[in-house]
Amino acid sequence: MNRNQEIDSIIEALQQFFPVKNKPYPLHEPLFAGNEWEYLKECLNTNWVSSAGPFVDQFEQHLITYTGIKHAVAVVNGTAALHICLLLAGVEPGDEVLIPSLTFVATANAVRYCGAVPHFVDNERTTLGLDPYKLGDYLKEITEVKVRGCFNKQTGRRIKALLPMHTFGHPVDIEPLEQLSIQYQLALVEDAAESLGSYYKGRHTGSWGMAAAVSFNGNKVITTGGGGAILTNDPKMAQMAKHLTTTAKLPHRWAFEHDQVGYNYRLPNINAALGCAQMEQIEERIEQKRNLANQYSTAFKQIKAVQWFAEPASARSNYWLNVLLLDNSFETRRDEILDALHNHGYLARPAWRLLHSLKPYLHCPRSDLTVAEQLERQIITLPSTPVQGGSHE
């Protein structure tokens, strides 16, 4: 089979799932198949549409029950959740925070909101997340642990936190990262924006760090329109998260007293109502996505140009986005393949552009990023809404 036939084979595989011609198939679409209309009408009928109301509390309880994490604080988006997590972790202006270069830009932006500096480290192929073993060797080389914390010998700055991200919903190998965080006195915060419904060694993502951020953007497994949440097992941290995200206002029947700089980050009740209806469907939604992933796995097995990415052995993934890895001989044709897919209505995407190559982050510290750079050339994400294709219609 020649190289153009391989591209045709990729398109033919997708046609099994998305057969309607001249119809665009987005990367991920929201699904509304439950009580969404009923709950939204209740908000309108009762006038509870803003940042207070019963659905906010219900939504937070849904998250607690589903993830097994003790506390949840609903906020306006996942980036706001990350920002607050880092503040709660003690990240201060001038600190460095270790993050993958292969992640959505919000991970780095949240670090900068704190006045801190992203420090980019490499990914691994088995999880698409941070490589704990390469990171361990790197920290051994460039850091010095003092009474006041871990310091970068090259820049003189404190390295305060470690911020792994569960890429496309696949859990990072977080247990050795947790061990590194203890060894080097780093606050461990999880960017779990994409991984609601994913588990590492039987524990839901977001339960390993001192805090975690989740996103409910319109393209996520469930959506509140825009929205996010802070997850933590620490009651004091949860209390402070709720305080900071409600403008740090002290409780009072009528007075406006604020005891520190806070943020207007609380999720409106009308968005939480949407989230409650979505959470009622989440187990079925995850099962549908895993079924689609299994079918994708079979469909792409015989195509030599690509490898379908399967969940890591230690994990159960939500398969938020299904991923193809191009063979080394095809990675230079990534954009050609994407063009061909788009021409047929399949709105596939590459990975994000590596953050260390973006203008705001060109001068940030970084480790060797060989694997992340190769993954950027090889990743193609596929339409992943479960009810769109094949036997799911």
Rank of each mutant, 00 (worst) to 15 (best):
A315Y: 06
R316E: 14
L139N: 07
H258N: 11
N35K: 14
A273N: 03
L382P: 04
G225L: 10
K289Y: 00
L130Q: 10
I182Q: 13
L267V: 06
G390Q: 03
L231K: 00
A351L: 02
G53A: 11
A273R: 01
S198K: 10
H243C: 07
N264D: 15
V147L: 11
D234W: 07
Y66D: 07
H83A: 03
G389L: 01
C364P: 01
A351R: 00
R125Y: 12
R253I: 14
T224L: 10
E6D: 11
Y138R: 11
L82H: 01
F59W: 06
T332V: 11
Y184F: 15
E311A: 15
H166I: 09
Q179C: 05
P251G: 10
S367H: 05
N22R: 11
I64F: 10
L139M: 14
L186I: 08
W320D: 01
A313R: 12
G34I: 01
R158W: 08
T205V: 15
N22G: 07
S384F: 04
A299S: 14
N47D: 14
Q15R: 15
I7H: 05
Q260H: 13
Q278Y: 04
T65N: 15
F59H: 03
T67E: 06
Y296A: 05
Q58F: 08
I182E: 13
I182R: 11
L347G: 05
E60Q: 15
K70D: 13
I142Q: 08
L128N: 04
D259V: 10
A193W: 00
P118M: 08
K359T: 13
H363R: 06
L135G: 04
L40W: 09
S198C: 12
A187S: 14
H392T: 02
A351C: 08
F216Y: 14
Y184M: 02
V105R: 07
A192R: 01
P164C: 13
I11D: 05
C150E: 02
L325D: 03
A238Q: 06
E376I: 02
L358N: 04
A351T: 02
P26E: 04
